[in-house]
Structure formats: C-alpha cells, structure tokens
Design a protein around this nucleic acid. Structure first.
Lengths: 141, 141
DNA sequence: AATTAGATTATAATGATTATTATTTAAGTA
DNA sequence: TACTTAAATAATAATCATTATAATCTAATT
C-alpha cells in the first residue's frame, strides 16, 4: 500500500494522521515476519525514541478494526500481527513459535469450498498447522 | 474415553493418578464448550473445594503434551482447551468469543488435500473462522 | 509400614495488555 | 496565519491470565 493511499484510508475512517501512526502502519503492513507488538515497538524506537508502547497497541488495534491486519492469538499469551488477511496457511513451530506462510491459489480454492458448506459469513480466518521445525527437530525439541 | 482407559493412559505415560487429576481429565475430555482454565477450575471447586488453579493448569498442560487435548490461543490472551484433536473448524464470534464446532468428513478430506501440498508433518492444526454470531449482530455488535 | 518421587496447595512473581491522565498535536475554521 | 478542539501521544499505573516457588502431602513401590 502506498503512503498516500494509507493516509487517505486513515482520514476517511476518521483517524488522524500522525508521524508515529504512519511509521507503525508502514512497518506492519509490509512485514512478512508476523511481529509482536513489542517487536514493532522496538523497531519504532529507532526513529521515535520517545514513542510509547501504548501508541503501538492503539495503532495495531485500529488497523485490525479497519481490516488491514489480523491479530493472531497464541497459546503463549502473546499476539502477533499479520498484514496478509486473505485465506492462507500459517505453519507454526510448536516449539519455537516461528511462523512460515503458505500462500497458494489452491488453498484459497479448497478453503472457499469448505466455507460454502458452513453457511456463514466469515469476517476472517486463521488456518494454522503446527509442526516442529527442522532446527527444533535437530536440537531434540 | 473410559475412566479405566484414562487411568491406564496416565500411568503408562508416567503420571500419577490422583482424584483431582481424574476429575479434571474427565471434565475436559467430555467437554463440548472449549472451556478456559478458570472455567475448569470453577467446575472442580464443586467437588474439590480446596483445589488449586495451579493443579488445573498442570493437568491441562500434561493432557496437551500427551495429545489428548489442544490448547487454543486467542487474541484476548485467554487460552481455551479442546478435546477434539481431529481437523475441524471452530466458528468463533469475533465479538463475544463464543465457539461453535463444524465437524464434517468433507472438511477432513479437503484439509488433507491441503496438507498433502504442504509437504510437512503436522502435529496439530487450528482452523478458525471468525463471524459475528446472530445474537451479537442483533445487538449491533 | 517405610520410602520417595511426584502432586497438590497456597501464594508470590511475571509479563503482556489495557486503562488513566496530563500534555501535545492534527486539522478544521475564522 | 492564528485559534479551537477533539483526538493522539507519552508516561505510568492497573489488570489479570499464567507461571514459578516452596512447603506439605500422597500415590505407588519396596
């Protein structure tokens, strides 16, 4: 998403455009690493040394509300954020928590077949497959 | 799972069989409501008035470890526990958090097609579809 | 009955997230 | 351009699910 497009989107949703907000949005929207709030905060500190983590949370929540990112819960009690809101599979190591995306047209097709059977109107989805990654398997978990 | 079968399973995995443990296991393993740890704790208090919530957590974790239940993370920071470990869809209200299961042979079939493409060895999965349930839609979210 | 490794209880500690409040600022208006 | 104000930010306190700790207690073996 272009910077100008982002600014327009924020304004049309009634949110003010601040430097902190722009940088948080740009970072998370282009991120491939499913970062935690703290990871985003650490990144922002480089450019905004006095930024508050509350600002990071507030921005992540608003992006979630307007549908630009998905909040991924986890069993260790830390949320991660994913800018990819289309149906795709997150391959997650049950040991180290590392996430890899599997994005394929065939997944979207098969998934839409499943959804059709459900007779509901989805507003999002999380498809998570748990594995033990090569690194963790080597180390014996 | 029968009581005797459960006892055997616990013993063969090297765990001691205590009254608290049996009751926690029996409750969660037959539960359809994806309870939280606190929900399990409240239920156990009826029969074991001095039970500690630490015991509940310990037992839920051991059941998860031996593969009898799945821990479901959530974005509100509370885990729920599901004794249904086969591939099925959890239909979750994004507003009130209520979970409904959708369990169909066709889901398992389509899912296994997806897994085949992944070329990984899954040790579990969570398929979550987010909706707004009828009750929450009525109340205007 | 004695032994002991593991379980339980009670409670303290942890840590991610949320709430609060004073201050600052974006953005509309005169 | 200066004024206004509703919203955003920063700093910090509060919350609360979960985990850690330590002192009993007990299941299961000898």
């Amino acid at each position: 998403m272009e910077k100008q497009q982002l600014i327009t989107k924020l304004r049309e949703k009634g949110f003010k455009v601040t430097p902190q907000r722009i940088d948080i949005c740009r970072f998370i929207l282009s991120s491939k690493e499913h970062p935690t709030a703290d990871r985003v905060y650490q990144e922002m500190l480089r450019k905004h040394p006095t930024i508050s983590i509350a600002t990071v949370y507030q921005t992540l929540h608003l992006l979630n509300k307007i549908g630009l990112i998905e909040e991924m819960g986890s069993s260790v009690g830390i949320s991660r954020y994913d800018p990819n809101t289309s149906p795709h599979i997150n391959i997650i190591c049950k040991n180290c928590g590392k996430i890899r995306d599997y994005e394929e047209e065939s997944v979207r097709e098969l998934w839409s077949q499943i959804i059709t059977k459900l007779k509901v109107t989805p507003v999002g989805q999380h498809l998570e497959v748990y594995i033990y990654c090569d690194k963790c398997k080597e180390l014996g978990t």
